[in-house]
Write a protein that binds this DNA or RNA. Sequence first.
RNA 1: GGCGCUGUAGAACAGUGGUUAGUUCGGGGGGCUCUCAAUCCCCAAACAGGAGUUCAAUUCUCCUCGGCGCUACCA
Length: 484
Amino acid sequence: MEVTMVRVRYAPSPTGHIHVGNARTAIFNYLYARHEGGTFVMRLDDTDLERSTEENIDSMLDDIHWLGLEWDEGFLKGGNLGPYRETERKPLYDLYLQQLLDEDKAYRCFCTKDELEAERRRAEAEHRIYRYGGACAHLSAEQVEQNITQGKPYAIRLRIPEEDVIVHDLVRGDVQFKTEEFDDFVIARQNGIPIYNFATVIDDALMEITHIIRAEEHLSNTPRQVFIYRALNFDVPQFAHVSLILAPDHSKLSKRHGAVSVGEYRLEGYLPEALINYLVLLGWSPKDDREFFTVDELIKEFSLEGVGKSGAVFDKKKLTWMNHMYLGRKDAVAILTILKEDFAEQYAAAFGGLPEDKTLAAINLTKGNAQVLPDLFALARNIVQPDIVITDEKSQEVIASPEAKQVVQYLVDHFDAIPFGQGNDAMSSWVEDLRNQIPLPAKKLYSPIRVALFGSKDGPEIVKLFLMLEPASIRERLQKALAL
RNA sequence: GGCGCUGUAGAACAGUGGUUAGUUCGGGGGGCUCUCAAUCCCCAAACAGGAGUUCAAUUCUCCUCGGCGCUACCA
């Protein structure tokens, strides 16, 4: 049996930061390639010259790198089957266009836009389904010649044979299309530039792509592409059409729904591993209850059989929850690095000029309470800065009560009894013993202390706060709390 | 309109010809003799509808309805 090396591709239009839907498609391709030990090819679909600016290409690449989806062959990487930018592949398209013309599998169509438009209107008025009438399908060689010498512009249409098409889709099974649903569609415009369906087929075939994993929106166009593969005697690859990502109202997820691109989530403080994990789970399932996966685990587990068929609503709350879980487990040094690089300004404002080990300790103490990276600035700054800021009302109420004052006053009065520098156990038992000293319910006892030391009634354990903060700083905080 | 894909709680996913239909997020409540987004426990919440096949259908088939996509000299 012939063993074919799996080759998949990601062919983004570089119009800026990557939409999460495209990102998921890229992730699936990446995982499939790695799982199968195949090759992941990256091709730039940059035919939209207006939007394919260098800046947009960079944004797209930033997102891909940030997600860690390194490709093996293609744009910027090279390979034997290039070029890997569609704008550089025009000669290739021309070659195959000419071949189809020579073999009479395609023909020149001299119809004007107005003529076609009129034809379409007529069909609509008569409630017929519009299909190209074939005015130019059987022009004689002389007529064609004459039109060309007259300088009449022409598009190129593919002759559709009388054959049904069955698309074997790895996630949807066999999908059947009847030949009469299609007309001789345009494969190259009057300006000579091929349309998407044609260019993609040429690219995928020449780059020897074996599995095309892409969004569901392309499923309906797949039979058209199959006609092209067949006309050129190219092997038809395997297809896998992945469902779309939807907004909460089930419409297509777009900018009006808030953040939709990888770049935006990065800016909001999500971790790449969390975004990948969430995105993969949106439409793929390991068929059991596991939810957390490293990329290596995903590579091991991923299969097209696990990919779901129905559209999935993007749930930012669940993403945020997942990010929170990842943040809590992430190494503080790694977090600090990201904070410095991606949030330089806020970093400088919150931790600027402080010794790094202090910042690190503060991050370690509070990372479990952060949902997105910037939360850390508010959380950790109160540990590290001399002036604490109490932002939420409930915490302000807690510290304002007479009982709270009583507790804080006790600590001030017995400050020397706090076992600083004597280790974890000593501090723990001292904190516990406070309950014997002050006759208050635990909650009423400890909440004010946390607010006084940390600025919020919720957060790190009291013991850890006492261990973490400088004694002088603690004294100062307690005294300030009395005045609140 | 035509064609195609699709339809399990508010959301994401499991699952089964006979089950108390499971897990996670979100919502509600409670425990953890300090809190919390951490952890543990509990509650509410779903098989779109209708036929057919069958002793039996959420599960198989068909239809209807709903969602989405394609129907471009867009990608």
